[in-house]
Design a protein around this nucleic acid. Sequence first.
DNA 1: CCTAGTCGGATGACAAAA
DNA 2: TTTTGTCATCCGACTAGG
Length: 706
Amino acid sequence: MPLSSNLHAAAGAADCFFFDRSRSCRLVCIAQRDGLLPCQKQRGAEEPAPLPSPTRSPPPPTIPLSLVFAPSAAAAAVVRSLLLRSRRRPRALPRIRSVPLFTAEREGQRGSTMVDWLSDSDDSDKFEWESDAEAEPSSAPALRNLDAAGPSTLVRQGSNGWANGEAPPNSLIEGYVGMGFTEEMVVKGIKEIGHNDANALLELLLTYQAIGDDTAVGNYSTSCSIPQSMEDDSDLDSEYWDGDDDADGGEPKSDGCSDEDFLQEMSEKDKKINSLVAMGYPEDEANKAITRCGVDAPLSVLVDSVCASQAAGEYEVITGRCSGLFGGRKKARLMEESKKKRKRCGGGAQRSRPPSDDESMPLPNPMVGFNLPGDMLRTVRRTLPKQAIGPPYFYYENVALAPKGTWNKISRFLHEIEPEFVDSKYMCAAARKRGYIHNLPYENRKDILPPAPKTIFEAFPHYKKWWPSWDHRKQLNCLQTSISSAKLTERIQHALASSSNPPPPSVQKYVMKECKKWNLVWVGKNKVAALDPAEYEYLLGFPRDHTRGPGKTERYKSLGNSFQVDTVAWHLSVLKDMFPNGVSVLSLFTGIGGGEVALHRLGIHMRAVISVEISEVSRRILKGWWDQTQTGTLIEIADVQTLTYDRIASFVDRFGGFDLVIGGSPCNNLAGSNRHHRDGLEGEQSALFFEYFRILDDVKSAMSRM
DNA sequence: CCTAGTCGGATGACAAAA
DNA sequence: TTTTGTCATCCGACTAGG
């Protein structure tokens, strides 16, 4: 089974990924510096239904943990330490021999970080990725040897070429060949690590296969546009980037084939190119920088040269009438960041590299996206990588002001496409700063009619009556998932009643602060109040009473989490001419159906919508709206994690593929208003982004077979 | 058990001041 | 150039009452 490009992009974006191939390559776990991140359960989700056995051919072998990608030595080391720390510790601890992914072409099969499973003497702690029985392989019981050798058996080739000097029985090799591996691959694997540990061998064979597939495709060479993800501020990193000392990122050099040996054989120029490539810069850029600066130039100078070149390149590709649109501002910022980083790291070059996941993506100012209704198309040009071009078209949304590095990471997963950051205050009367990554064209967008009111008074003229002259708000702030307490409005009323008219500046300041924070409007003399759910619906572009039914709290929550329909419709409007017969949509994290309402308001027929939404209340809302307005097929799924490859493939067969994959994954752990668990993309809910990515990848795979 | 109400900081961007 | 201040933000733990 070939690994698709997205998976490799993923390997570049996170530290390490665990894919469960026994369940159609489902993403099981993401390992990051902060910890192992299981991708199995969504809070509040029911247990996933039993999944059908994989039908893809050749059927993947059932194993507890099938593939580990770590894009760097540092990442590999992190994973190893995490596994050591983890209560969910594998029976066999991986010895991670790390070669960054992007060196695949240069180093052939060593392109991916491989994880060699070595037996651990501590067998008591079974590695339980899931509670069900899949942790125990069933399809290859005869191949397993649970009494595998202990940690001291660092595998070495015997004099006869076999690991441990022991030739495997022919039946063993045939067993693996029967599983779909080539004999050559099996022999090589056994020579490499022996055959005592069936798990380890399977891992290695799967890794060989994956690498073989990819190198055959010819992707992920050093000229690949996917830069490597390396995280800042880690000792592991410095260990790694001080490559001359320990190219293995601190891993014991027990196997005698470390990258250090490899590096030592290289010429000075090659060495520098390699260093730059290892930092994530394209090889040709590194080469050019050396040509420009000379082979003797310090690495820091070369890094700056590459940075400047890249920034200039970006400037050429994406320019804007607006200075904030990833133009000169970004260039300047890149240069500034590069300088700052070098300074921070004591002038050393080890830590300088292109924007990594730890760096923030500059937000455009004004936040108007590529263009706005009634506005000329900004001179935005972007070139999508080949694998990102639709169909399927995809549209991903999340909060713009996410923690540092989040959008870099999201973008890296989604073909390095620059997010289109838009504040919905340019489309309606309330702000909503969001980033959208999509592969839709953006010429000839159309506004939906009637256009949304742009100011508070346009939307709610009756509030004019009580609006004090010293409240200068023309628009509202972001509509959130909860509203102010009654006590707060009472306090405000009391403060105003007990002061002069107009109130003194201190009172004005206090009142304005609370009004802005909670989107309060003036409903009487000295009386402010929160917007009601119907007003939320109106401002967000939903039909009246769209969410009516559940309690107010639920309504606020679902509305506060939804799309701003006019904004999304503006982006999706290009689909109307492209799909005159309607679209089939895979809608992830549907919520109350902002995307669907947008398509409907654009007059785009939805032949079919497969909607995935965990909240029963939201599902009910969508179903109610659908039954009133639509004639197509609606299939609602509760848990995104039950949407396996096989289910996706069957939907693809049934509906002739998907025209649009749309969704905004949970932002709970990204939003600034989360005081408790703003854990970033790795947070419990926000990590479901990786499900979006995984499903999009599955859709592409399934559609490529059509 | 469910619903509604109340209350409580952190983060990052930006601008102004030092 | 660095520090400080201001602003905005798809929230969650806890409690009370039904």
